[in-house]
Amino acid sequence: MTINILFAAKAERWTTYQAPLTEALKAAGLEFDLRTDFPPAEVEYIVYAPNSDVQDFTPYTRLKAVLNLWAGVEDVVGNATLTVPLTRMVDHGLTQGMVEWVTGHTLRYHLGIDAHINGQDGVWRKDIPPLAQDRKVTVLGLGALGAAVSQALVGLGFDVTGWSRSAKTEEGVNCLHGPAGLTAALETAEILILLLPDTQATENTLRAETLEIMPKGACIINPGRGPLINDHDLLEALNSGQIAHATLDVFRVEPLPIEDPYWAHPNVTVTPHIASETRPTTASQNVADNIQRSETGQPLLHVVDRALGY
């Protein structure tokens, strides 16, 4: 039987996803009808972006699952009309992109590259950085992205501590969890990387009290979610020198307003939410594989835990 699949995202996404998604569904051996418009009662799967026009799932009476195109689900997980399984995007392309971006900025801080780029003034600055084994890096969040980033940094020789809300194990990583573990993880964080989900429990993880725990002169990299940081408190910590520099890729309001103080702050690097992006080819394979699993009676992968919010 033909499987009816609704693509519910902005029109420009359909332009980039139609061909790779069609190819991936065919490669999975599925007989399907993929469209951007269906009578709701006929739809069995929705390939979804939370900023699409589909916000009320009640009319989708045959719906089996919603397959999110984004890693973040905070804008849909609380939708009371969504009662079928919701999956988040765990995609090789997205993961690899995040690993490359975070690794690059970690090395930038570790090697002191900014001082050489910005210091072309004739001064011979022979500041030799420590080896990676002597640089303490902390990753907050050990989900798929945090685990991959941690392993990449371990592979480069860094002394890596990872923190998560519940106990986890990653080879070569000092894994901590819970409130006491968070304090310990921050106390050694010369370079701190934020890869937590956006939930009520994680909002303002970095605030005055936690920023003060970190070593003076630490650096922060946030490719996770904007609300993880209390912006006022971070700016205060930057102004006082408690935090030496912050590289921020995500914000509470995007695009970041031109009047936002982060733009002009000398110790902040703003990047426009480019740390990683879902790649249509690999994401389409992920979606097709999950639909194929569902249709053959296998459990869906990467199902969101509504209680946890991710």
Results as ranks from 00 to 15, higher is better:
A180E: 15
L300F: 04
N68S: 15
D198K: 06
W124M: 13
A41S: 14
V123S: 08
A201E: 12
Q298C: 05
V173R: 00
I274W: 00
T205L: 10
R207I: 02
D289L: 13
D249E: 10
R165Y: 06
G224N: 03
T269R: 08
V304W: 00
R293L: 13
V250T: 11
N230C: 14
R252V: 14
L176T: 07
W14Y: 12
T202L: 09
T83L: 15
R13L: 13
S166G: 07
S150H: 03
I291G: 00
A24H: 04
W124H: 10
G104N: 11
A9N: 02
E203N: 11
A65E: 05
A152F: 04
Q292T: 02
P85C: 10
R252T: 13
N4R: 13
G155F: 07
G141C: 10
V137H: 00
L235K: 03
E295Y: 02
L182W: 03
G217P: 12
R88P: 03
E100G: 02
D305E: 09
Y109M: 14
A80S: 15
F38M: 13
S240Q: 09
L192Y: 02
F38Q: 11
E31A: 14
A208F: 04
S294K: 01
L235H: 05
E42Y: 01
G143K: 04
G181L: 12
R279P: 03
N239S: 12
Y262F: 15
I221G: 02
Q133M: 12
T202W: 01
L206M: 09
A307S: 08
E74R: 09
L300Q: 01
T36I: 12
E44T: 07
D75H: 13
G146D: 02
Q96T: 15
G155D: 11
Y48W: 07
A218N: 02
N204C: 08
Q285I: 06
E212H: 10
A71L: 07
N267S: 13
I220K: 01
P85R: 06
D91M: 07
E171Q: 15
E170F: 03
P39V: 15
D127H: 11
H273Q: 08
T161K: 04
M1I: 07
A189L: 10
A27H: 11
E190A: 09
L156N: 02
G112N: 12
Q298F: 06
S166V: 13
V54F: 02
S166M: 09
L69W: 01
D37T: 13
W70M: 13
V43I: 10
E44F: 06
